[in-house]
Design a protein around this nucleic acid. Sequence first.
DNA 1: CCGTATCCCCGGGGATACTG
DNA 2: CAGTATCCCCGGGGATACGG
Lengths: 117, 117
Amino acid sequence: MECKPLLKEAHKKEMRAIQDSMDVLSGKWKIAIITSICLYNKRRFSDILNDVYGISNKMLSKELKELETNKLIKRTVLDTQPVTVQYELTKHGKSLQTIIKDLTAWGIQHRKEIIGK
Amino acid sequence: MECKPLLKEAHKKEMRAIQDSMDVLSGKWKIAIITSICLYNKRRFSDILNDVYGISNKMLSKELKELETNKLIKRTVLDTQPVTVQYELTKHGKSLQTIIKDLTAWGIQHRKEIIGK
DNA sequence: CCGTATCCCCGGGGATACTG
DNA sequence: CAGTATCCCCGGGGATACGG
């Protein structure tokens, strides 16, 4: 009667949690999009398009939809002329802020580590 | 003379840092692989293959190579019979622990948010 | 301005079999 | 056990043009 099996169960749960997260957040663009919105609080389609280097409008549109489906962002159409659309983080989306902050710091450190030698 | 331009510059740097991070960590499997190794400290090829649900040996091999190139993990061949190979996090890899912990917690919360409604 | 539609190509990545 | 090699297919995703 040892604790290994219990540990294994706990680890499986952690692995599943990670994979749940990654199902929503993985992909080349999602985190960058969220970061863009997060930095400016509210952000328009074309602004995000500029912030996220290399993304196409088709991809951005698709990713935004998925993020909305997963309740991470809220989409608001403003009846200006012509139409503008604003994206902002939901409460659930904002709960990623810590992770984003850490990832930013890590990215800087990583650049030093690899390129800076 | 206002502070907006400075802010914009800072935000661009943050965006670049995020994209640096994502260049290394994005993709369906990387974080899950790192998590597996992290949970057990040292982990063998076939163990990771089991931990990361759905990954193929080809993908795992490829991803491990990339993680090694980016100095996140260390690969050690043990001269057992037959050969076994051990992966562990480098110091730099370990610096992801906080992020992984947060992602785990977030994944659990997310599941509640979406599925648990 | 904010997307959607269409076209089209390339490579990501699975299944399987094989080697040291 | 830890990968590599080969085959092969499908869809991710870019470019471009168009619609509300």
